[in-house]
Design a protein around this nucleic acid. Structure first.
Length: 435
RNA sequence: GGGGGCGUAGCUCAGUUGGUUAGAGCGCUGCCCUGUCACGGCAGAGGUCGCGGGUUCGAGUCCCGUCGCUCCCGCCA
């Protein structure tokens, strides 16, 4: 007998159906027994009258435990007494596929860390599963947009012989008789795709950061969304792609899940107006000071409190939750970011903030071999291990730019969550390698 | 790496100025309840108070150390 999903029950009154799912709740009374069954599409009540003495079926239902996996056959009946959709299943057959132990180790209000210990139980809650439905829709919308604009998907290696950028610390791995490093970014390889003439590329994949960061928005392994575009005139071309792309993603997610998100997470997903406000770093600091906030001195990046304050100000003045901050000084940017011809200490770079959190860092890249070498030298980058990268620019490289984008941070903001761990299937942090 | 907070029952927490057998709600076990739907009622089990040391007649409570969790900063997406 074919499996019926709970969501299909309203159209099947008086039919005999087979449901498979988990015991969400049990109410075992003197004369009547109820199971609230949960599958991936919803909840349904199952009812069985209790005989005197109880039938063998009654006894087996009494022995059930919450969260057991069961298969149930019964007849669908409309009954206005039932709060759950006004219908129920009259139980005829009960098969226990897997009996759950009587005490589930976590509850809905358990601490996040404890819930991660038992993540598969935590994820059984429909609200938690919604996170991954939204993620799936978001990624699909991204790909839709990329393909419409002739982007090519690449999969770059995660095992590397040297660092891909300075800054973030690297995990080491044994690699036969030498040391390999886990990729902290596909940066160099997506630039290789530019030198290869791929035009426009994207990658969605894992990156690894060995920073001992103990905050609600960092993890040591996360999914990075990377984009690189050839033949740009400046970083403005990259920003204008990113905002159109993001607006499409948010529109798609809102259409598909907006109501559920509002219901489950009490968050309204707002599709942003285009273009997103752009503000240079120095103007941003000026704006912050005018508004009575502290701002870091020249030559320094915004700190997290400044980013939150800036987002609030921009949101109030421009009605946009997104903001590009541009023109970072060379002191806080890697050597490969392109600089203005007339202002050699300022890079053609940007960050994208959404409601105070950094979603993206992007830039036009330096594609001229001699300038790239000079900038590496100035930044005291040891070019020995990355000569393969510098070589990309020796035989004709197009002007190009791109960005890296934190998928979990996007998801966190879309769902109004305060911690990336909440929206990561399995979080990895300095003290977390299991499950 | 620096700073703050927290660690008491399976889960979420309370525990006065240090004082005798350490509590609650939920969950669990048993019994009762003709339709429940956060079902209800009665009874019960369950704790070396994170760990180690110290102060004290006496420590869940005070001190030191240690481990774990958490948030902020740094680093970044």
């Amino acid at each position: 007998m074919k499996r019926t999903l709970i969501a299909e029950l309203p159209g099947l009154i008086s039919e005999r159906v087979r449901l498979r799912g988990w015991v969400n709740a049990l109410r075992d009374q003197k004369r009547v027994q109820f199971i609230v069954l949960r599958d991936e599409t919803g909840l349904a009540q199952v009812v069985l009258a209790k005989g005197d003495p109880p039938s063998e079926l009654n006894e087996r239902l009494s022995a059930l435990t919450v969260e057991s996996a069961v298969t149930i056959v019964g007849t669908v009946a409309a009954d206005e007494r039932v709060n759950l959709g006004g219908l129920e299943l009259k139980l005829e057959e009960l098969e226990v596929d897997s009996l759950a132990e009587p005490e589930v180790p976590i509850a809905a209000d358990s601490a996040l860390d404890k819930r991660i210990d038992w993540r598969y139980l935590d994820l059984r809650r429909p609200d938690r599963k919604l996170i991954f439905e939204v993620q799936t829709t978001a990624e699909q919308a991204m790909r839709e947009f990329w393909r419409k604009e002739q982007f090519i998907e690449i999969h770059t290696p995660k095992l590397m012989g040297s660092a891909s950028e300075s800054g973030a610390e690297l995990f080491k791995a044994e690699y036969f008789d030498r040391t390999a490093y886990l990729a902290q970014s596909p940066q160099f390889y997506k630039q290789m795709a530019m030198a290869a003439g791929f035009g426009k590329v994207f990658e969605v994949g894992p990156v690894f950061r060995a920073n001992p960061s103990f905050t609600s928005r960092h993890d040591t392994e996360f999914t990075s969304v990377d984009v690189e575009i050839s033949w740009v005139d400046s970083h403005e071309d990259v920003m204008s792609f990113e905002e159109r792309w993001l607006a499409h993603v948010l529109t798609t997610v809102k259409e598909a899940h907006g109501e559920q998100i509002a219901q489950s997470f009490d968050t309204a997903l707002v599709v942003p107006e285009l273009p997103f406000p752009r503000i240079t770093l120095e103007d941003a600091k000026e704006l912050l000071r005018e508004a009575g906030h502290d701002a870091p001195p020249a030559g320094h990046d915004l700190d997290p409190p400044s980013e939150r304050a800036l987002s609030a100000i921009v949101s109030e003045r421009h009605g946009n939750e997104f903001a590009f901050v541009t023109d970072y000084p060379t002191s806080v940017r890697p050597f490969y970011h392109m600089r203005y011809e007339d202002r050699p200490t300022v890079t053609k770079s940007f960050d994208l903030l959404w409601r105070g959190i950094e979603l993206t860092t992007g830039a036009q890249r330096e594609h001229r071999y001699d300038k790239l070498l000079a900038q590496a030298d100035e930044k005291k980058v040891d070019v020995g291990p990355i000569q393969y990268y510098l070589d990309f620019f020796r035989f004709g490289a197009p002007p190009h730019g791109g960005f890296g984008f934190g998928l979990t941070r996007l998801l966190m903001q879309m769902l109004g969550q305060e911690n990336v761990r909440e929206v990561t299937f399995l979080y990895r942090g300095p003290h977390r390698l299991e499950p």
